[in-house]
Simulated scan of single mutants.
Amino acid sequence: MKKLLCRVAVTGCLGLGLFLTAQNLTQTTTTAIPSPSQTLASLATLDLDTLITEDLATIDTSTTTTNSPGDPSQPTHFPPSGNFKLIGPAKDDIDPQNPYNEVISFDTTNPLAVPMAFRAFGDHVKIHWFTDMIEMKYYFVGRSCGGGSPRIVLLVDADGDGKFNQSSGDFAANGHVNPPSTVGCRMNQWVYEDLTDTGNRWEITPGGAVPDLLLNRFPYFTWNELITAVNADFPNHRILAGFLVEDSQSFFPADQGCAYYDLLSIGPHPLSDHSDTSNGNKEPNNC
Protein backbone atom coordinates (compact mmCIF):
# COMPACT_ATOMS: atom_id res chain seq x y z
CA MET A 1 0.00 0.00 0.00
CA LYS A 2 2.81 2.42 0.82
CA LYS A 3 4.40 1.92 -2.59
CA LEU A 4 1.05 2.36 -4.34
CA LEU A 5 0.32 5.60 -2.51
CA CYS A 6 3.75 6.96 -3.35
CA ARG A 7 3.18 6.32 -7.05
CA VAL A 8 -0.29 7.84 -6.86
CA ALA A 9 0.87 10.99 -5.13
CA VAL A 10 3.76 11.50 -7.52
CA THR A 11 1.54 10.94 -10.55
CA GLY A 12 -1.02 13.38 -9.23
CA CYS A 13 1.56 16.05 -8.51
CA LEU A 14 3.42 15.70 -11.80
CA GLY A 15 0.08 15.89 -13.58
CA LEU A 16 -0.71 19.05 -11.69
CA GLY A 17 -0.17 21.39 -14.59
CA LEU A 18 -3.21 19.95 -16.34
CA PHE A 19 -5.56 21.34 -13.73
CA LEU A 20 -3.43 23.99 -12.04
CA THR A 21 -3.51 25.88 -15.30
CA ALA A 22 -6.94 24.75 -16.47
CA GLN A 23 -8.70 27.27 -14.25
CA ASN A 24 -6.12 29.94 -15.01
CA LEU A 25 -6.69 29.66 -18.74
CA THR A 26 -10.32 30.63 -18.28
CA GLN A 27 -9.38 34.01 -16.83
CA THR A 28 -9.40 37.18 -18.93
CA THR A 29 -6.01 38.87 -18.78
CA THR A 30 -3.54 40.85 -20.81
CA THR A 31 -0.58 39.19 -19.11
CA ALA A 32 1.06 36.11 -20.57
CA ILE A 33 -0.15 32.94 -18.88
CA PRO A 34 2.28 30.04 -18.46
CA SER A 35 1.47 26.98 -20.50
CA PRO A 36 0.87 23.60 -18.84
CA SER A 37 4.37 22.57 -19.90
CA GLN A 38 5.86 25.57 -18.08
CA THR A 39 4.00 24.72 -14.90
CA LEU A 40 4.99 21.08 -15.20
CA ALA A 41 8.61 22.06 -15.69
CA SER A 42 8.69 23.91 -12.36
CA LEU A 43 7.33 20.81 -10.60
CA ALA A 44 9.28 18.17 -12.48
CA THR A 45 12.58 19.54 -11.18
CA LEU A 46 11.62 18.47 -7.66
CA ASP A 47 12.21 14.99 -6.29
CA LEU A 48 8.56 14.45 -5.41
CA ASP A 49 8.94 10.68 -5.12
CA THR A 50 11.50 11.02 -2.35
CA LEU A 51 9.50 13.68 -0.49
CA ILE A 52 6.31 11.64 -0.51
CA THR A 53 8.06 8.35 0.27
CA GLU A 54 9.76 9.89 3.31
CA ASP A 55 6.44 11.07 4.73
CA LEU A 56 4.38 7.98 3.97
CA ALA A 57 7.12 5.64 5.22
CA THR A 58 6.45 6.94 8.74
CA ILE A 59 2.74 6.11 8.63
CA ASP A 60 1.26 3.22 10.58
CA THR A 61 -1.48 1.94 8.27
CA SER A 62 -2.87 -0.56 10.78
CA THR A 63 -5.82 1.71 11.63
CA THR A 64 -7.20 1.24 8.13
CA THR A 65 -7.98 -2.40 8.92
CA THR A 66 -10.16 -1.69 11.97
CA ASN A 67 -13.74 -0.90 11.02
CA SER A 68 -16.64 0.43 13.03
CA PRO A 69 -18.86 -2.32 14.53
CA GLY A 70 -21.94 -0.26 13.66
CA ASP A 71 -20.91 0.25 10.03
CA PRO A 72 -18.36 -2.26 8.69
CA SER A 73 -17.73 -0.05 5.65
CA GLN A 74 -16.41 2.79 7.83
CA PRO A 75 -13.06 2.72 9.67
CA THR A 76 -13.06 3.71 13.32
CA HIS A 77 -10.39 6.30 12.60
CA PHE A 78 -9.49 8.54 9.68
CA PRO A 79 -6.75 6.59 7.85
CA PRO A 80 -3.29 8.03 8.48
CA SER A 81 -1.79 10.75 6.32
CA GLY A 82 1.71 12.05 5.83
CA ASN A 83 3.21 15.32 6.97
CA PHE A 84 2.87 18.34 4.72
CA LYS A 85 5.50 18.44 2.00
CA LEU A 86 6.50 22.01 1.15
CA ILE A 87 7.18 22.31 -2.57
CA GLY A 88 8.57 25.24 -4.54
CA PRO A 89 9.16 28.60 -2.78
CA ALA A 90 7.54 27.46 0.47
CA LYS A 91 9.28 27.08 3.82
CA ASP A 92 8.92 26.77 7.56
CA ASP A 93 8.70 30.29 8.93
CA ILE A 94 7.74 32.45 11.90
CA ASP A 95 4.55 34.43 12.44
CA PRO A 96 5.29 38.06 11.44
CA GLN A 97 3.37 39.21 14.54
CA ASN A 98 4.52 36.62 17.10
CA PRO A 99 8.07 35.21 17.20
CA TYR A 100 6.89 32.20 19.23
CA ASN A 101 4.43 30.96 16.61
CA GLU A 102 5.76 28.55 13.98
CA VAL A 103 4.04 28.86 10.60
CA ILE A 104 4.84 28.36 6.91
CA SER A 105 5.28 30.95 4.18
CA PHE A 106 4.78 31.06 0.41
CA ASP A 107 6.78 33.46 -1.77
CA THR A 108 4.98 34.22 -5.04
CA THR A 109 7.29 37.01 -6.19
CA ASN A 110 8.47 34.86 -9.09
CA PRO A 111 5.38 34.62 -11.33
CA LEU A 112 6.32 31.16 -12.61
CA ALA A 113 7.21 29.57 -9.27
CA VAL A 114 4.43 27.48 -7.70
CA PRO A 115 4.54 27.02 -3.90
CA MET A 116 2.41 24.35 -2.29
CA ALA A 117 1.94 22.29 0.85
CA PHE A 118 1.11 18.74 -0.24
CA ARG A 119 -0.22 15.79 1.77
CA ALA A 120 -1.03 12.23 0.65
CA PHE A 121 -3.69 10.16 2.41
CA GLY A 122 -4.11 6.58 3.52
CA ASP A 123 -6.44 3.97 2.14
CA HIS A 124 -9.94 4.70 0.76
CA VAL A 125 -10.52 8.17 2.22
CA LYS A 126 -13.92 9.64 1.28
CA ILE A 127 -14.63 13.29 0.59
CA HIS A 128 -17.25 13.77 3.31
CA TRP A 129 -14.73 12.73 5.96
CA PHE A 130 -13.10 16.14 5.49
CA THR A 131 -16.09 18.08 6.84
CA ASP A 132 -14.83 20.59 9.44
CA MET A 133 -11.24 19.58 8.59
CA ILE A 134 -10.33 21.88 5.68
CA GLU A 135 -9.34 25.23 7.10
CA MET A 136 -6.48 27.65 7.58
CA LYS A 137 -5.32 31.07 8.71
CA TYR A 138 -3.54 33.32 6.22
CA TYR A 139 -1.61 36.57 6.46
CA PHE A 140 -0.93 38.43 3.20
CA VAL A 141 1.93 40.92 3.40
CA GLY A 142 0.95 43.89 1.23
CA ARG A 143 -0.73 41.58 -1.27
CA SER A 144 -4.10 39.95 -1.72
CA CYS A 145 -5.86 36.96 -3.30
CA GLY A 146 -7.55 36.30 -6.62
CA GLY A 147 -7.30 34.51 -9.93
CA GLY A 148 -7.89 31.20 -8.17
CA SER A 149 -5.18 31.55 -5.52
CA PRO A 150 -4.71 30.56 -2.86
CA ARG A 151 -6.88 27.45 -2.87
CA ILE A 152 -6.97 23.99 -1.37
CA VAL A 153 -7.18 21.15 -3.87
CA LEU A 154 -8.40 17.59 -3.31
CA LEU A 155 -7.37 14.96 -5.86
CA VAL A 156 -10.44 12.78 -6.41
CA ASP A 157 -9.93 9.27 -7.74
CA ALA A 158 -13.44 8.84 -9.15
CA ASP A 159 -13.43 5.06 -9.62
CA GLY A 160 -11.33 4.23 -6.57
CA ASP A 161 -8.62 2.35 -8.45
CA GLY A 162 -5.86 4.08 -6.48
CA LYS A 163 -4.56 6.11 -9.42
CA PHE A 164 -5.15 9.69 -10.53
CA ASN A 165 -5.93 9.74 -14.24
CA GLN A 166 -8.00 12.59 -15.65
CA SER A 167 -8.55 10.71 -18.91
CA SER A 168 -10.53 8.09 -16.97
CA GLY A 169 -12.72 10.62 -15.15
CA ASP A 170 -10.64 11.59 -12.12
CA PHE A 171 -10.82 15.26 -11.16
CA ALA A 172 -9.72 17.97 -8.75
CA ALA A 173 -11.99 19.74 -6.26
CA ASN A 174 -10.81 23.31 -5.63
CA GLY A 175 -11.77 25.25 -2.50
CA HIS A 176 -11.27 29.03 -2.63
CA VAL A 177 -10.87 31.73 -0.01
CA ASN A 178 -13.02 34.83 0.54
CA PRO A 179 -16.24 33.73 -1.18
CA PRO A 180 -18.29 34.62 -3.08
CA SER A 181 -15.89 36.96 -4.91
CA THR A 182 -12.72 34.92 -4.10
CA VAL A 183 -10.70 38.13 -4.61
CA GLY A 184 -9.70 41.11 -2.47
CA CYS A 185 -8.58 39.33 0.70
CA ARG A 186 -7.60 41.51 3.65
CA MET A 187 -3.93 42.45 3.92
CA ASN A 188 -1.52 42.55 6.85
CA GLN A 189 -3.72 40.70 9.32
CA TRP A 190 -4.49 37.10 10.16
CA VAL A 191 -7.72 35.81 8.62
CA TYR A 192 -9.28 32.44 9.44
CA GLU A 193 -11.38 30.49 6.93
CA ASP A 194 -13.27 27.21 7.17
CA LEU A 195 -13.53 25.87 3.63
CA THR A 196 -16.32 23.45 4.58
CA ASP A 197 -18.69 26.22 5.67
CA THR A 198 -21.80 27.36 3.77
CA GLY A 199 -19.96 29.64 1.34
CA ASN A 200 -20.07 29.15 -2.44
CA ARG A 201 -16.36 28.48 -2.72
CA TRP A 202 -15.86 25.07 -4.39
CA GLU A 203 -15.44 24.23 -8.07
CA ILE A 204 -14.09 21.25 -9.96
CA THR A 205 -11.60 20.70 -12.76
CA PRO A 206 -12.56 19.70 -15.39
CA GLY A 207 -15.84 21.57 -15.02
CA GLY A 208 -18.26 18.82 -16.03
CA ALA A 209 -16.65 15.97 -14.13
CA VAL A 210 -19.43 15.72 -11.51
CA PRO A 211 -22.80 15.63 -13.33
CA ASP A 212 -25.00 16.35 -10.31
CA LEU A 213 -23.17 19.62 -9.64
CA LEU A 214 -24.37 21.01 -12.96
CA LEU A 215 -27.86 21.17 -11.45
CA ASN A 216 -26.66 23.66 -8.85
CA ARG A 217 -24.87 27.01 -9.06
CA PHE A 218 -22.09 26.81 -11.64
CA PRO A 219 -19.16 27.25 -11.23
CA TYR A 220 -19.07 27.68 -7.41
CA PHE A 221 -20.78 25.32 -4.98
CA THR A 222 -21.03 24.86 -1.25
CA TRP A 223 -19.15 22.08 0.52
CA ASN A 224 -22.37 20.19 1.24
CA GLU A 225 -23.40 20.38 -2.42
CA LEU A 226 -19.97 19.10 -3.44
CA ILE A 227 -19.83 16.10 -1.12
CA THR A 228 -23.44 15.13 -1.82
CA ALA A 229 -22.84 15.13 -5.57
CA VAL A 230 -19.50 13.31 -5.41
CA ASN A 231 -20.90 10.59 -3.14
CA ALA A 232 -23.94 10.16 -5.40
CA ASP A 233 -22.08 10.14 -8.71
CA PHE A 234 -18.95 8.26 -7.59
CA PRO A 235 -19.75 5.96 -4.64
CA ASN A 236 -16.39 4.18 -5.01
CA HIS A 237 -14.31 7.35 -5.07
CA ARG A 238 -11.34 8.04 -2.84
CA ILE A 239 -9.31 11.14 -2.03
CA LEU A 240 -5.68 10.47 -2.86
CA ALA A 241 -4.12 13.74 -1.71
CA GLY A 242 -4.77 17.36 -0.85
CA PHE A 243 -2.70 20.51 -1.03
CA LEU A 244 -2.64 24.27 -0.57
CA VAL A 245 -1.33 26.00 -3.68
CA GLU A 246 -0.73 29.46 -5.16
CA ASP A 247 -0.33 29.52 -8.95
CA SER A 248 -2.11 32.60 -10.36
CA GLN A 249 0.57 35.21 -9.74
CA SER A 250 1.73 35.10 -13.37
CA PHE A 251 -1.47 36.79 -14.56
CA PHE A 252 -2.90 38.24 -11.33
CA PRO A 253 -0.21 40.62 -9.98
CA ALA A 254 -2.11 41.29 -6.74
CA ASP A 255 -1.13 37.75 -5.70
CA GLN A 256 2.60 38.42 -5.90
CA GLY A 257 4.53 38.64 -2.65
CA CYS A 258 4.64 36.86 0.69
CA ALA A 259 1.89 34.95 2.43
CA TYR A 260 2.03 33.21 5.80
CA TYR A 261 -0.18 30.23 6.65
CA ASP A 262 -1.00 28.76 10.04
CA LEU A 263 -3.20 25.93 11.33
CA LEU A 264 -3.55 24.52 7.83
CA SER A 265 -5.89 21.52 7.95
CA ILE A 266 -6.54 19.07 5.13
CA GLY A 267 -7.82 16.14 7.11
CA PRO A 268 -6.80 15.45 10.71
CA HIS A 269 -3.58 16.71 12.29
CA PRO A 270 -3.36 20.38 11.27
CA LEU A 271 -0.08 22.06 10.54
CA SER A 272 0.52 23.72 13.90
CA ASP A 273 4.34 23.90 14.01
CA HIS A 274 7.41 22.91 12.02
CA SER A 275 7.21 19.29 13.15
CA ASP A 276 4.20 18.95 10.83
CA THR A 277 6.26 19.50 7.67
CA SER A 278 8.64 16.91 6.26
CA ASN A 279 11.03 19.17 4.37
CA GLY A 280 10.39 22.69 5.52
CA ASN A 281 13.76 24.26 4.79
CA LYS A 282 14.73 22.70 1.48
CA GLU A 283 13.22 25.45 -0.67
CA PRO A 284 13.92 28.81 1.02
CA ASN A 285 12.07 31.94 -0.07
CA ASN A 286 12.48 35.66 0.60
CA CYS A 287 9.66 36.12 3.09
Rank of each mutant, 00 (worst) to 15 (best):
T198W: 07
P89H: 05
A172Q: 02
I152W: 10
S168D: 10
P96C: 08
L155C: 02
T28F: 10
T39G: 05
P80T: 13
T58R: 07
Q23H: 14
N224E: 08
S248D: 02
F78P: 00
V10T: 11
T31N: 03
K3W: 08
I239E: 03
G280I: 06
G142S: 13
F234W: 10
N224S: 09
S81W: 09
L20G: 15
N279A: 05
N67R: 13
G162T: 01
I104V: 09
T66K: 09
L20I: 15
T30A: 01
A90M: 05
A158M: 00
I104K: 00
D93P: 04
L240P: 00
L263G: 14
G12S: 06
T228D: 10
T182F: 03
K91I: 11
T198P: 05
V156Q: 01
T66W: 06
N279F: 04
A113T: 11
P180C: 08
H128G: 15
Y100W: 02
D194M: 15
A117V: 08
P115V: 14
L20W: 12
L154Y: 01
I33C: 00
Y260G: 09
T31R: 06
A120H: 08
S68E: 14
Q74G: 02
L214Y: 09
D212T: 15
F218Q: 06
F106N: 11
P72S: 10
P96W: 07
D49W: 12
G160N: 01
T50M: 12
T30F: 09
G88P: 07
S73I: 12
I94Q: 06
I227M: 04
S42G: 03
R143K: 12
N224W: 04
V103R: 04
K2D: 12
E225T: 13
D247G: 13
V210D: 01
S144G: 15
G208H: 05
K3F: 07
H176Y: 09
P206A: 02
Q74N: 10
L214G: 13
L263F: 12
A44S: 11
A120V: 15
T58W: 01
Q166R: 09
W202D: 01
L5E: 14
L271N: 07
Q38I: 00
R201W: 01
A44W: 11
Y139F: 13
P89C: 11
D273V: 07
A113W: 08
R217P: 05
V141R: 04
I94E: 08
N281V: 12
F130G: 06
E193D: 14
I134K: 01
F221K: 02
V183R: 01
G184S: 12
I227N: 03
Y261A: 10
F121M: 11
T31P: 00
F234V: 10
H124L: 13
G82P: 03
T277L: 03
F243E: 00
P80K: 06
K2P: 08
Q38C: 00
V245E: 04
G162Y: 01
Y192N: 11
A32P: 00
P253V: 15
L43D: 07
N236R: 07
F218S: 12
L271K: 01
S42R: 08
Q74L: 13
N110D: 14
G208A: 15
A41N: 04
V8P: 02
T196V: 14
P89E: 11
V8E: 08
K85P: 04
